[in-house]
Amino acid sequence: MTELPKFKYQPNALELGIIEKKNIYCPVCEKNRDYSYSGGIYAVEKVEYICPWCVADGSASKKYNGIYIDDASCEDVSDQSKLTELVTKTPKYVSWQQENWLAHHDDYCSFEKYVGWKEIEHLKENLSEDIERIKSEYGLSQSEFEQFLVNDGGMQGYLFKCLHCDQHRLHIDTN
């Protein structure tokens, strides 16, 4: 069996269902594959399934002149090649409105998992800046934030981790 590609900014894609075990015919490499990425690509042509290998090597992005993550929803980093890798070689996570990719130490963070308060309570201090920003943006008290942030609930959390230190980052989305 061929080993699945590794995604620098999306290390848990299989565990999170972003890459799934599903037999497909990949229109990019023109091979039958046992795994599929079906999270979508921003392109003119509608594409249902792409194999993870064609996502990872950038060939699907090139073929369809598309991106997986909207570069306007990514925090800024100084190295343009990091943005290129993120938007053309990284499968996006599923969000209700618009995925938002966070950065730290002038690099994009890896997307770790979908979370609610109970999954991140132990990271409260580590996430304090993001928690305060989110509470301010949504006009929430700490107790409201804790109550409303529920995995698969009305306020969904997206947990990221810096590739260079132990700092976690948090983005939320509401339905």
Rank of each mutant, 00 (worst) to 15 (best):
S81H: 05
Y35W: 09
G153Y: 02
D71E: 06
H122Y: 10
L127K: 13
K161M: 04
A103I: 01
I19D: 00
I41T: 04
Q98T: 11
A60W: 00
T88A: 12
A72K: 14
D173W: 00
S73C: 12
R169S: 06
V115K: 00
P27A: 10
V28S: 09
C109H: 00
I120N: 08
C162E: 00
S128T: 07
K8V: 01
R133V: 11
Y9M: 03
L123K: 10
L127M: 15
L140G: 09
Y35C: 10
Y64C: 03
N65P: 04
D166I: 10
N12W: 04
T90I: 09
I19N: 01
I18D: 02
D71C: 11
V94G: 06
Y93H: 09
I172T: 07
K6S: 15
H122C: 05
T2D: 12
V77A: 07
E121P: 08
N12M: 10
S73F: 15
K21N: 08
C29T: 02
D76A: 12
V115A: 03
L14G: 05
E125K: 12
L140M: 13
V44A: 14
S38V: 02
L159M: 15
D76L: 14
L16H: 07
D106F: 02
G139T: 04
D106W: 03
P5I: 13
H105Y: 08
V44D: 09
N32C: 04
N175P: 06
Q10I: 01
K8E: 05
T88K: 15
K62D: 13
L16I: 04
G66Q: 05
E30R: 15
E119W: 13
G40C: 05
G58R: 02
V77D: 03
R133P: 07
L127N: 10
E119R: 14
P91E: 09
S95G: 13
P27R: 07
A13I: 01
N151H: 08
H104R: 05
K135R: 14
D130C: 07
K118Y: 10
S136D: 11
A56N: 15
P11W: 02
C109D: 00
D76M: 13
G40Y: 02
F7M: 11
Q98N: 10
P5N: 11
S143A: 13
P91I: 06
A72N: 12
K92Y: 03
Y114C: 03
